[in-house]
Design a binder for these strands. Structure first.
Length: 564
RNA sequence: GGCUCCUUCGUCUAGCGGUCUAGGACAGCGGCCUCUCACGCCGUAAACACGGGUUCGAUUCCCGUAGGAGUCACCA
């Protein structure tokens, strides 16, 4: 029996050849410079930040060159699969606006002519390629059990030999065809292994688009191509899919770097031109003074759900990812904003050469800064919409408040927004309620009695100040200057300095200064000693509410005394 | 352990033999502005892992050492 006959015996149902598929999936009609990339996750749960990072770069590279970005599902390991795995992935991608041009759209549908894009549906194709290898004496059936392999592995470790299925350890490599056939006929399970033509002593050089020139020993390990369940392992699937789907650039995490020699060998064995490889640095986390890979299980910030729950806008996360991808992005972004008034990520040219080579610490502090700036630039309408969407999901009571008088809410969120120096104090939408609650009576009157008065604390003095303000000075139509002028007048009337500087120059001449007076109004209005611009708050709330709140405070205070 | 990659302020980095008394951003600290906070502005502290070479001259090139990361599955 020759190799061709062995191939027919092993895979009798496979009747197509390589040419069939090469014809079915022709080269893409794209310009030379167009980059075709893919994101190829396993459906094992939700994505994590590292995946979004990779995906962002893949999509960006494809789109900025007029290429194609597609999604392939690598579900060849049925053990690890999770229910709704595909849905989870699509959801996460959508949330980050990482739209695909081609590939899997949901659990049941896909678009594009290079499919199927779900690996478990491509079994016949993989087997065709494997059969070709068997027929050409480049693959063989292996009967080693897990125990056999584990034992060899132990021996290799204890004798300090290189680990793997190669050389003398590749015990099934030279089993005569007839023997192999007989064992299969006897019902023995087998896998198909590559008969690696590589020599460990020889070096292979290749150029990674990010890491640069790298030299490796050639691969001489007879890796498993097809598992005993008939499905391929990643390596074969990578070769077949990225060849037939005409991927030009394989962009993936750096954990794949060390399998490049194997992948190159696979392409060489078939005589195919390999894609270009770009291995992106991993996202890491500091722990006990060391860096380690950001872990979905151990680090909450690695999970997409973390951002969702906190209300951190995905657009801003993308801006952060762009700055860690290309450190010049930040400067570019600022410059665009300054020159054009707006900056769009789509207009930035991401550069492989500027992507760092080693793992990057995922810095939540930096992210927060980017988010604050991002939200700070949003219009009141946008903030309102996003805050509402967030609240509808996580805080329905607050969502109700926000929407019951949308116009009012909009004004509250619009305080000190817009203009050249906007507030930048919202770092996530879960914070919104905590920063504006006192603008809503429903929340204001539900708070415990906790007024944060500062310099002026005496009730009598407070009463006099507020009453005088309400009677003599309050006018809803005043502009900011007039308003503040009146506050100064009020201060002077009661023996407080009109200017802080005056007070500081001669503290003994005054009971305090204008700031102390406005602090009283601020605290009566909001209970808080730190708030956005008091003028804006008062204007929004109006005289009646200020009166009501003042009366409430007095009432509470007297109750408080009685109960003591 | 083998293989591979990496090593500039706390973090992300600029630097590609003299321009470096090493630049920026975030975080920190101090100040100014100011009715509080935020914003803004100004300032400050803070790094070339170590040891050898090469060179007139090394952050930059080479070699070691140390440290870190990744990988060595019928997982991707």
């Amino acid at each position: 029996m020759n190799n061709q006959e062995l191939a027919d015996f092993l895979l009798p149902k496979i009747d197509k050849d390589l040419t069939y598929y090469e014809t079915k999936y022709p080269k893409r009609p794209l310009p030379e410079t167009a980059i075709v990339t893919r994101y190829a996750p396993s459906p094992t749960g939700h994505l994590h930040m590292g995946a979004i990072f990779a995906c962002f770069i893949e999509q960006k590279m494809a789109h900025q060159t007029g290429g194609v970005f597609f999604l392939r599902i690598e579900d060849t390991d049925k053990k690890r699969e999770v229910e709704n795995g595909i849905t989870n992935i699509i959801q996460d991608l959508n949330e980050f606006n990482l739209v695909i041009d081609e590939g899997v759209e949901n659990e049941t549908t896909e678009k594009g002519v290079y499919g199927p894009y779900v690996q478990s549906q491509r079994q016949e194709i993989y087997q065709t390629f494997a059969k070709y290898l068997v027929a050409n004496d480049l693959a063989y059936p292996c009967f080693c059990s897990a125990e056999d392999l584990a034992r060899d592995h132990e021996i290799q470790i204890s004798s300090k030999e290189r680990q793997g299925y190669y050389g003398k350890w590749a015990r099934c490599r030279n089993i005569p065809i007839e023997t192999a056939v007989q064992r299969i006929k006897n019902g023995e399970k087998f896998v198909l292994r590559l008969k690696s033509p590589g020599k460990y002593e020889r070096k292979i050089r290749f150029k990674d688009l990010i890491k640069g020139e790298i030299e490796f020993p050639e691969n001489d390990i007879d890796i498993v191509l097809i598992k005993s369940d008939g499905l391929p392992l990643y390596h074969l699937a990578h070769l077949v899919d990225d060849y037939l789907m005409r991927t030009t650039h394989v962009i993936r995490g750096e954990e794949w770097l060390s399998s490049v020699p194997l992948h190159l060998q696979l392409f060489q064995v078939f005589g195919f031109k390999p894609p270009k490889y770009a291995h992106i640095p991993g996202l890491s986390k500091e722990e006990d003074g060391n860096k380690r890979k950001l872990s979905k299980r151990r680090d909450p910030e690695a999970a997409i759900s973390y951002y969702h729950q906190k209300g951190i806008p995905p657009e801003a996360v993308l801006l952060y990812l762009a700055t860690i991808a290309n450190s010049n992005f930040e400067d570019w972004y600022e410059k665009e904003l300054k020159e054009k008034g707006c900056a769009r990520l789509e207009n930035f040219q991401l550069d492989f050469k500027k992507i760092g080579v080693s793992a990057v610490l995922f810095d939540l502090a930096k992210l927060t800064n980017i988010v604050k700036n991002y939200i700070g630039r949003l219009s009141a309408e946008e903030v309102y919409q996003k805050a509402l969407t967030y609240a509808e999901k996580y805080n329905s009571a607050f969502a109700k408040l926000l929407s019951q008088d949308a116009d009012y809410s909009l004004k509250v969120l619009g305080i000190e927004r817009g203009g050249v120096k906007p507030r930048k104090d919202i770092s996530c939408f879960s914070e919104v309620q905590a920063s504006i609650w006192y603008m809503f009576d429903e929340l204001f009157y539900a708070q415990p009695l906790d007024y944060q008065f500062q310099t002026i604390k005496e009730q009598e003095e407070i009463n006099r100040l507020v009453n005088t303000y309400l009677e003599k000075y309050f006018n809803i139509d005043d502009d900011k200057n007039t308003w503040f002028e009146k506050i100064k007048q009020l201060a002077a009337e009661f023996g407080y300095a009109r200017e802080v500087k005056e007070y500081k120059a001669n503290p003994s001449n005054y009971k305090g200064h204008v700031g102390d007076v406005s602090m009283v109004l601020r605290v009566i209005t909001t209970t808080q000693s730190t708030t956005p611009d008091l003028f804006e708050l008062l204007k929004l709330l109006g005289k009646t509410k200020l009166q009501e709140r003042f009366a409430w405070w007095q009432k509470k205070l007297s109750q408080h005394r009685v109960s003591q």
